[in-house]
């Protein structure tokens, strides 16, 4: 809260403190978290049911691995945002996909092999969830791909495809950021990304896309990857016309030029 006041003071003087964006993220997360506290009974129920042993373990892991950037109390520093109200979903997503801890400060944290076991991640998640209410790790029933793929396709087209590409192949954003590919990403992480809005992804709260909507999107992606992508053969990464153009020049025309050389070469 102190952060917020200081930001206001800076703004009045017309200059932006480097902490301003961190503070804004904090405000954003608090607001989201607040909405969750009010609307998502599961979130609060789960966070209160976590065992205190896990929380203690999580706190230790946090202090050793995360506190450098996020602050000892997870209140954020110049290097990393506050984690109040980000919820266990955010921790599970960021650590589970290896994005956190960051390899280096860059435009965007990249996916890499996770550095912690799921038990350790759960412990940190429990600790963070104990600080302030936030979106929880999703229930298994939204993740099994049993939703309505047709509805999911429509929602995916409107809300996701512009950044992640219609085949989930990913795409470029501004200033070196990018929307990662969704092919092969676990359903849990897709759900968590939607509710928490990691990095520069917008938040798709339950007021925008209901849990059922999210389950439908996950079901469609599963359908697309398992059934639709290879119908006509190898899909060249789902990148669209650029990949197709390169393919025909290099392999199509390449093979045919090879044949022309054979045709006109004189046999010995």
């Amino acid at each position: 809260m102190q952060n917020r006041n200081s930001t206001a003071a800076r703004r009045a003087s017309g200059r932006r403190h480097p902490l301003a964006s961190v503070a804004l993220i904090l405000i954003g997360l608090l607001t989201t978290g607040g909405a969750y506290a009010l609307l998502s009974t599961t979130a609060s129920a789960e966070s209160s049911s976590d065992s205190s042993a896990a929380i203690t373990e999580g706190q230790k892991l946090f202090a050793a691995n995360c506190a450098t950037c996020h602050g000892v109390n997870a209140a954020g520093t110049a290097e990393g945002p506050s984690l109040y109200g980000v919820g266990s979903a955010s921790v599970d997503f960021q650590m589970g996909t290896g994005r956190m801890p960051l390899a280096f400060q860059g435009p965007q944290g990249a996916q890499k092999p996770p550095q912690f076991t799921q038990t350790q991640i759960d412990a940190v998640a429990a600790y963070i969830a104990s600080l302030a209410p936030g979106p929880a790790v999703p229930d298994e029933k939204w993740l099994d791909g049993s939703g309505d793929a047709a509805a999911g396709l429509e929602l995916f087209r409107i809300n996701c495809a512009m950044c992640h590409n219609i085949a989930g192949a990913g795409g470029a954003l501004t200033e070196g950021k990018y929307a990662p590919a969704l092919q092969g990403v676990e359903a849990k992480y897709i759900y968590e990304a939607m509710v928490t809005g990691p990095q520069n992804m917008p938040v798709f709260s339950d007021l925008n896309l209901t849990p059922q909507d999210k389950a439908n999107i996950i079901s469609y992606l599963k359908f697309q990857q398992e059934n639709a992508s290879g119908v006509g053969g190898v899909d060249l990464g789902g990148l669209g016309p650029v990949a197709e153009g390169l393919f025909i020049w290099i392999f199509g025309l390449g093979a045919i030029v090879g044949v022309t050389i054979w045709i006109t070469a004189r046999p010995n």
Partner: peptide, 19 residues
């Protein structure tokens, strides 16, 4: 595969795909 049109869906002026 070339141009998997089933991924894109029918034309609608509001959505778009990266790439």
């Amino acid at each position: 595969t070339i141009n998997p049109i089933w991924n894109y869906g029918p034309y609608d002026p509001a959505p778009i795909s990266a790439g």
